[in-house]
Design a binder for these strands. Structure first.
Lengths: 201, 201
DNA sequence: AGATCAACCAAGCAAGCGCTAGTGTAAACC
DNA sequence: GGTTTACACTAGCGCTTGCTTGGTTGATCT
């Protein structure tokens, strides 16, 4: 068995699993469906993963890791103003959700299907990502870009972002970047973003 | 069998089912779990419902119906200003999600588990509720309370509201009404709500 | 050439799943 | 007082589930 290993094959299988988990949900995805999608028999799956739980854990780890590094990169590239930083975070978040459209979605929507030890092992990753958000939200509050209760504002923003998964149409005209722009225009109406947002309609 | 019937017993069973569906998710909830929660044997369940799908449909119908009538009532009671009406809608929405905390949550989070005929039968209810929201959002846009793209604004707001289910603590100090207030303060900062919101922190 | 190893397969087990069939019973109705 | 009705039970069928076992293959290394 290949449990700890991070072989390229396992990476690829994780990618395919993420896709199915998004399509069907974790519970409805059977090991036989996973195997078929991967072009192998169901028994062979357990050469790469100890059990179904571990597949979920692998997907969620990759999804969060990916979101985290993309967000960090975006923050390094962008300017220093609270608005630019908030925009960079929102854009990065939406791109991992809507363009890649796989592992990060699973991380958000199937988190509670993890057993307690997997949750314990992955929560630090999750916390790191959320800390990034909290910091950027704090800057925006301190800079007067937005107003309100830290706790509530960050959760409302995350809700607006995470819910996009339910209605976003990748074939449509709107890109993740546009969504990020409009969201910030909505909550910070005294900015350039707001002007652009209201005339763009 | 008691399929079309709306007996009081069935109503009660539907309420219990909603609770379990929220706790465990529809897929993970077995008919045996449902039966045990109801104090009967699993076979007896099918005297009240044709199959498990029908239980889900009953829960979702009740949840949406309930949200719809509560929202209508709230709109009748409140004032005529766009802000008051938006607040009334948000508050009603949050109360069905967080206080009742059952059927409406299932309606939002398990909708895609409905088979196609149940979805067809229930979509008009859902549409009616969403139409109510669209109208109130339109008034807020026309009245200059908020700005932006209709489509996006309404979806961002719904996202912020619906995501509360994931983090809200009913034992905590914040009431649904407070959340509604803060959300409106966040997206419409030029109002009384905004002043109250920013000083309240 | 022999040993090693990752990757896979065929076959199937035990448990749990949704659901059915047939029966019992107490209250309600004519 | 006999029939109907609502609600529950027992027992289990047929199927799917996650997972295991024991064995085969072909490439790589020594």
């Amino acid at each position: 068995m290949n449990v700890v290993n991070e072989s390229p094959r396992r990476k690829e299988l994780t990618r395919l699993a993420a896709q199915l988990f998004v399509q069907e949900g974790f519970d409805r995805t059977t090991v036989r469906m996973l195997a078929q999608e991967m072009g192998i028999k169901s028994g062979s799956l357990f050469h790469h993963f100890r059990d179904k739980q571990e597949i979920l854990a692998a997907v969620i780890e990759e999804g969060t890791q990916n979101a985290l590094s993309l967000a960090r990169h975006a923050l390094e590239q962008c300017g220093a103003s609270p608005e630019e930083r908030l925009h960079a975070m929102a854009r990065a978040h939406l791109e991992t959700l809507l363009t890649d459209r796989n592992a990060h979605v699973v991380a958000l929507y199937e988190w509670r299907r993890l057993d307690s030890e997997a949750r314990a092992h992955l929560s630090h990753l999750r916390d790191a990502y959320e800390a990034l958000w909290e910091a950027v939200i704090d800057e925006a509050l301190d800079g007067g870009l937005i107003r309100g209760d830290r706790f509530l504002v960050s959760r409302f923003v995350m809700g607006a972002l995470n819910w996009t998964v339910r209605w976003y149409d990748p074939e449509g005209p709107r890109k993740p970047e546009d969504l990020a722009h409009e969201l910030i225009a909505m909550i910070a109406p005294s900015t350039q973003a707001a002007q652009a947002g209201s005339t763009k309609v």
